[in-house]
Computed example of a mutant assay.
Amino acid sequence: MTSLLFLIVCLSWGTTWLGIKITVESAPPLTAAGLRFLIAFPLFLVFALVRKQSLLFPREKSGFFIFVTVGYFSVPYYLLNYGEIHVASGLTALLFSSMPVFILIFSALFLGEKIYLSQCIGIAVGFGSLYMIVKTQGMHMDRAELLGVLAILAAAVMHALCYVITKRQGAHISVITFNTLPIGIAGLMLFIAGTFLEHPRLSDITLRSWSALIYLGLAASVGGFIVYFFLLKRLSPAILSFVFIIFPVFAVVIGAWYEGMAISKNLCFYSALLLLGFAITKLPVEKLTAKNKQMSS
């Protein structure tokens, strides 16, 4: 059952990128991000009430609440939507899979955690492979594509920073409290911003895009969250973090199928190299060797 649920999380997060791609075909990025969260919020609210969890952050964490609402939900999800207008869904997933690397860097900067040599090698291999993927996938890197890539990487950086700050300031806040009210407020803020800046006509959003929005709001956001929350109690964080290494594989395959793109040998090779490099950052050789020596002694 645990293995099946792990697979479900990988699939739900792996299909998220295609869902975003379909959404922004007819819905502007700000409006789309807002609608996704407004669809998800009622179910998160029900989940919080059933679990009898507080919706409010502790009073002394009001600044942290604003940071989470803006820096984790509002801005990054707009950037992801904007990026996918110009970048293929599979490549978006591969770009975002760099997020644990930024967590590692921020953890060293703000939490004083050690970065091992093997992790530095993994970072170099990962980003070198990412560069080769972008280069070999026929991206001309005009201004629009470059801004799309930078927007996706910026979203990964912001999420990583939020995870590290949360480790310091929000460790005692429940996962349900952390998500519910920020998602609702972020959804409302994004939708209002989209209304004034993008002037959307909801009637112009196609049935395909509405279907993708509902999928993102219910299955990818709420469903993926609930299953991930369930697995947190049954798997070590290190093992569960490999979701970020596995879901890009699903995203690349599904995205290539939907967008009618061939999966070249170069893409397979550099994607495998990229994910291997990022996996090394999660399991530093020096740390594992030291643990083995301690256990043998």
Rank of each mutant, 00 (worst) to 15 (best):
220 A>L: 02
268 C>E: 12
213 L>V: 15
67 F>Y: 03
144 A>Y: 05
126 G>H: 08
237 P>S: 03
202 L>H: 07
233 K>P: 01
184 G>Y: 04
249 V>D: 12
134 V>N: 03
198 E>D: 04
114 K>Y: 10
57 F>K: 00
48 A>C: 13
211 S>F: 11
136 T>S: 15
108 A>R: 09
83 G>L: 07
241 S>T: 04
99 M>Y: 08
43 L>Q: 02
104 L>A: 10
21 K>N: 13
250 F>P: 06
189 M>R: 06
87 V>Q: 09
237 P>M: 01
296 S>E: 15
139 M>G: 10
28 P>Q: 08
3 S>I: 11
269 F>T: 10
182 P>Y: 00
270 Y>N: 08
126 G>K: 02
287 K>Q: 08
197 L>N: 04
186 A>Q: 01
66 I>F: 11
248 P>T: 14
176 I>C: 03
184 G>C: 09
108 A>Y: 06
105 I>K: 13
112 G>R: 09
252 V>W: 09
33 A>H: 02
289 T>C: 12
248 P>A: 15
268 C>W: 13
195 T>Q: 11
170 G>H: 04
16 T>M: 09
241 S>Y: 05
230 F>I: 03
250 F>K: 08
57 F>P: 01
90 G>C: 12
126 G>T: 03
203 S>V: 12
214 I>P: 05
99 M>L: 12
49 L>D: 10
2 T>L: 10
261 M>P: 04
287 K>Y: 01
296 S>F: 11
170 G>Q: 11
70 V>Y: 02
25 E>M: 07
99 M>E: 11
134 V>L: 12
42 P>V: 13
94 L>R: 07
98 S>D: 05
166 T>G: 12
148 G>W: 03
295 M>I: 15
245 I>M: 11
181 L>R: 00
260 G>P: 11
18 L>W: 03
84 E>F: 08
99 M>W: 07
111 L>I: 03
105 I>T: 11
156 A>E: 02
8 I>T: 09
181 L>Q: 00
152 I>T: 09
119 Q>A: 14
212 A>S: 13
68 V>P: 08
28 P>S: 13
150 L>D: 02
31 T>R: 06
167 K>A: 08
120 C>K: 14
106 F>T: 09
251 A>N: 06
141 M>Q: 11
116 Y>N: 14
265 K>Q: 12
44 F>P: 05
102 F>W: 15
62 S>T: 12
72 Y>G: 04
270 Y>L: 05
5 L>M: 03
144 A>V: 07
93 A>E: 03
145 E>H: 02
179 N>E: 00
230 F>H: 07
4 L>E: 02
260 G>S: 14
83 G>W: 02
246 I>A: 11
106 F>S: 13
189 M>P: 04
251 A>F: 06
98 S>C: 12
118 S>F: 00
105 I>M: 15
288 L>H: 02
217 G>D: 05
200 P>Y: 03
223 G>Y: 00
280 I>N: 00
108 A>H: 08
256 A>S: 14
253 V>R: 11
53 Q>N: 10
168 R>G: 04
144 A>H: 05
201 R>H: 10
252 V>A: 14
138 G>L: 14
237 P>A: 01
